[in-house]
Every structure is written in C-alpha cells, then in structure tokens.
Design a protein around this nucleic acid. Structure first.
Length: 223
DNA sequence: GCCACCGGTGGC
DNA sequence: GCCACCGGTGGC
C-alpha cells in the first residue's frame, strides 16, 4: 500500500488515478490522490481538473478521492440544475410557442387542445417504435371507447406533406439557435463562477496549464 | 528549475 | 474535528 496508479473508469479513456501514501511527518499514513491526463499532466485537485476539462465533462458528481461518480452528490447540484432547468424551460417554452401543428394533424375526443395533442404524439414517439399514423378508424370519433387503437395517439389519421417537412427543418434551425444561446449563457455563467471562487485569475495552476486560451463556443456557422 | 512530498488552513 | 486544496521547499 504505497503507490498505486490505474485507469480511472469515471473519466475519459486514458486518464489515470494515483494514490500515494504519506510516509513521514505529522500526516504519515494519510494519502494524496492525483490524476494524470492521457498526455501525462498531473492534477492534484478537483478544481484544477475542472478547469482543464472545462465544459467537456460534468464533474459535479465526481468524487476526487474515490474517482467515482457519486449518486449522493446529485442533490447537491440544485443550484446548477435549477440554472440548467431555467434554460431548458426557456428553450422548450419558446419551442412550444412557435410550434404550429400541421393543418392535417387534428386531435380526437373532447377537450383535445394542441398542447394535449402534442404531448400525446411525443409520448407515442417515446413508447413505441411503430410509425405514428393516428387513429385510422373514423368510427373512433363516434365511439372512442370501442374503436380506440391504444398504440396510437389520440389524433386523426394524417399524412406528412413536403411542406410539413420544410417547416420542420426550419424550426429545427431556429431551436438550434436558441439552444446555442442558452449554452453560451451557461458557459459565461461558468466562467464567472470560476473567476469568483478561484481567487486571483492568474494563479499558479493557470500559468502552468499549457492549454491555449480558446474558450470560444460553437461558431456561428456551426449552427 | 522542477516536482514529490508534507504542512497549513479555510470551509464545512 | 476533518479534509480538500494548495503553498512551500528540500532534494535532485
């Protein structure tokens, strides 16, 4: 029990964890944990690791000492989750707002709004690998209890037109842009966090890092 | 000059 | 009181 180094499964391929037991002094018997990047750079704390990995990996549940993702840490993430939740809510809210359902898509049954129709279809997409065709029987309108096809959402049978497809492509472009904006906002929030709890922005670890300072997000023409 | 190693302490 | 994090330095 002195100096062990092995692959760390919680980190990307090639990352190694090392545990070194102190042999002398007041802290003899205690151990230090280090990580080595695939390129061999040594890391001795979680903040240092997080700075290096940036947004490429979520370390919020990562336990530096054990080298594992801890389930118990998930709740500690409320601040971060709430923030992400805000952005997600913002994006999906806008998505629903601009979500104009194709004319050919109509609900079945009483009190069927666009919103319930949308969630019925979304649900069907997630619970079945079958194509979504809607309720093929016209009789379902008259007597839903008898003629309902339970594997299909509560909407009339429909066709997808070229126009529908074109509109959908356009929508995807728009939503991608919204998502990009949300991710950028998140990134800036992170940069702020780092400069807040990291003290002086130019501390030793930053100087040591040989990374280039490319912190640009996705390019405009990537989206 | 580097870095392995232990000390010191702030935050919990 | 513990321990994660990082400072500092002795040995090379």
């Amino acid at each position: 029990m002195e100096r062990k180094r092995w692959e760390c499964s919680a980190l990307p391929q090639g990352w190694k964890k090392e545990e070194v037991t102190r042999r002398s002094g007041l802290s003899a018997g205690k151990s230090d944990v280090y990580y080595y990047s695939p390129s061999g750079k040594k890391f001795r704390s979680k903040p240092q690791l997080a700075r290096y990995l940036g947004n490429s990996m979520d370390l919020s549940t990562f336990d530096f000492r054990t080298g594992k993702m801890l389930m118990s840490k998930i709740n500690k993430n409320r601040q971060r989750m709430r923030y992400d939740g805000l952005n997600q809510a913002k994006v999906s809210e806008e998505l629903v707002k601009t979500m104009e359902l194709p004319k050919g898509l109509q609900g079945v049954g009483p009190g069927c709004t666009d919103e319930t129709l949308l969630s019925a279809i979304a649900s069907a997409l997630h619970t079945s690998t079958m194509p979504i065709t809607g309720q093929l029987s016209a009789a379902v309108e008259k007597n839903p209890g008898v003629w309902l096809n339970t594997s299909q959402p509560l909407c009339k049978a429909f066709m997808v037109t070229d126009e529908d497809i074109r509109k959908q492509e356009e929508l995807v472009q728009q939503v991608r842009k919204k998502l990009e904006e949300a991710l950028m906002a998140d990134m800036f929030a992170h940069v702020e966090e780092i400069s807040k709890d990291g003290g002086a922005p130019l501390d030793k670890d930053l100087e040591d890092d040989e990374e280039d300072d490319d912190v640009r997000g996705p390019e405009a023409d990537d989206v």
